[in-house]
Amino acid sequence: MLEATGLMVFYENMLALNNVSIRCGENQIVGVFGANSAGKSTLMYALSGIMLDIRKKEEMAGGERITLTGSIRYRDQEIMASKSSRRARLGIVLCPERRRIFKECSVLENLKIGGYLATAAQAQETLEYVFKVFPALTKLKSRLGGFLSGGEQQMLAIGRALMAQPKILLLDEPLLGLSPLMQAMLMHATREIRDERKISIIITEQYARPVIPIINYAFILENGSAVLEGTREELMNNPDVRSAYFGI
């Protein structure tokens, strides 16, 4: 469904992604694991097209020169040159790291903004679905985004991304700073979303343990390179991966 090959990203002379190839099949959940500075967020930015925006901004401000090469194919369509807005229209939606909630909008408004691309009927249907998957949000409808707890914000961020009618959802560190209980709940909800909405999902995380039960396939990034990939079972049986990413 989504296949990136030979992705390379340079921040000036620093190589952030080195020839990374990943793919995500129809209706799959794919995990991308790596430590800080492994290139997870860069990969997400490259897949969602935000990198093109960042590159333009840096260029205008006279900052770092960002070089981006490689190929991203989405349903037999080359989208490497497409802007992030076009990719979102095609169904590649990013739920960004650190949530980036609209702090001064209420929960309901946040969700409505997310539904900008959807038709009224789709938006209404998805809105109901979001409140069904995350019942905790129902009581908070009119609360301002900035006053939510970390877990509630994350639910809202995922909900907002769902409102854009994604075919493939990119979750960038959705478990950042959450309690183990909340982590388990979110991962459960993520699997439910995949099953009920037929959405493919790519999740990046540092710590693989809470994510591993729900994924079909995973890639491991180290210093910008994809060093290992495999199905859940293959990774579980690899002793290095177990000690580094599962803490077992």
């Binding site: 090959t5 030979g6 390379m8 340079f10 000036e12 002379n13 020839n19 190839s21 020169r65 070089t67 090469t69 490689g70 190929s71």
Partner: peptide, 14 residues
């Protein structure tokens, strides 16, 4: 891999 030995990037160095 199809990626590019033919591809170039502009490098800035001090």
């Amino acid at each position: 891999m199809t990626t590019g030995t033919h591809q170039r990037r502009k490098e800035r160095i001090d």
